[in-house]
Nucleic acid binder design. Structure first.
Lengths: 147, 147
DNA sequence: CTTACTGCAAATATTTTGCATTTGG
DNA sequence: CCAAATGCAAAATATTTGCAGTAAG
């Protein structure tokens, strides 16, 4: 495989090498899993990884997710409850909406929230970290068919 | 507030009674703690409760917070990491900003986010639950004095 | 009295950590 | 070869649950 295998993107190898870090199969597997799943908790990443390769350890997944996040290859947000949710860092700038009824997670381009962010700066002197924003509520589907 | 005791508000006793639930000292303690602390994890609520009375059990705090939330006497949001944060249900409508550097939590009136919410409905057909909104970023203080 | 509620301890679940072993470069 | 990374198992956390005893109404 060249510098790009079409799955995890072109430059993650370079990003690792640049810092003297090692390219291990586990790291590639975790990165692939995050990308495949879109949004996933460490648990789900582990499950996905183990679908491909056997014996990858949970602690490796935790450690790897931390590492990849430091390198900006993945990001995480808190989509309710306990477990943080990781997603691919390469994806376009977006925040998340989470439906409290069906749990569906949707990516929304940050452009929509631009005015909101500006207002927070003006009124509250608070600089919003858009990529980390999560909006809870109800999706159209669940609003239409109340449980 | 008529029946009020000035701490936990006027009608929590009535709210409990209306459902055939019992008024226990533990429940009052937990409600008081949430109100005193403003924003607190179950752990912090437990600590605060135990400052007043000894021997209140952690599981009682968990169970009580769940119960009080069902009754809309408290609310919770996810302010990062693992533990949910509870706050008093009676407080005015607001959402939270959390500084990722110093961890400071600020309450912001939902009015500011009104346009944002409307845009989410128009563009995404998503009904925002404002009380549950948490915005991560950097407060003015930390932006001014970068660590 | 009746049964909702609490305390306690054990069961779960989740994430972290120390250390010996493996392995990428 | 050597430091970095992994696996493993134990530890640290956080939350839930079953059950017997306590107490609110």
């Amino acid at each position: 495989m060249s510098t790009s295998d079409g799955r995890t993107g072109p430059d993650w190898r370079a990003t690792l090498r640049a810092r003297g870090l090692r390219l291990t199969p586990q790291r590639e597997l975790v990165l692939d899993a995050v990308r495949t799943l879109g949004h996933a908790t460490p648990d789900q990443v582990l499950a996905q990884v183990q679908r491909t390769a056997t014996g990858v350890n949970a602690s490796t997944v935790y450690r790897t997710l931390d590492l990849l996040e430091k390198l900006d290859l993945v990001r995480h947000t808190h989509l309710g409850h306990g477990a943080p949710t990781y997603h691919f860092g390469g994806s376009a700038d977006h925040f998340h909406t989470v439906c409290r009824d069906c749990g569906t997670v949707t990516e929304v381009p940050t452009a929509i929230a631009r005015t909101f962010a500006e207002q927070l700066i003006t009124d509250q002197a608070f600089q919003t970290d858009m990529g980390h924003l999560t909006v809870f509520g109800r999706c159209s589907n669940c609003a239409a068919h109340p449980s």
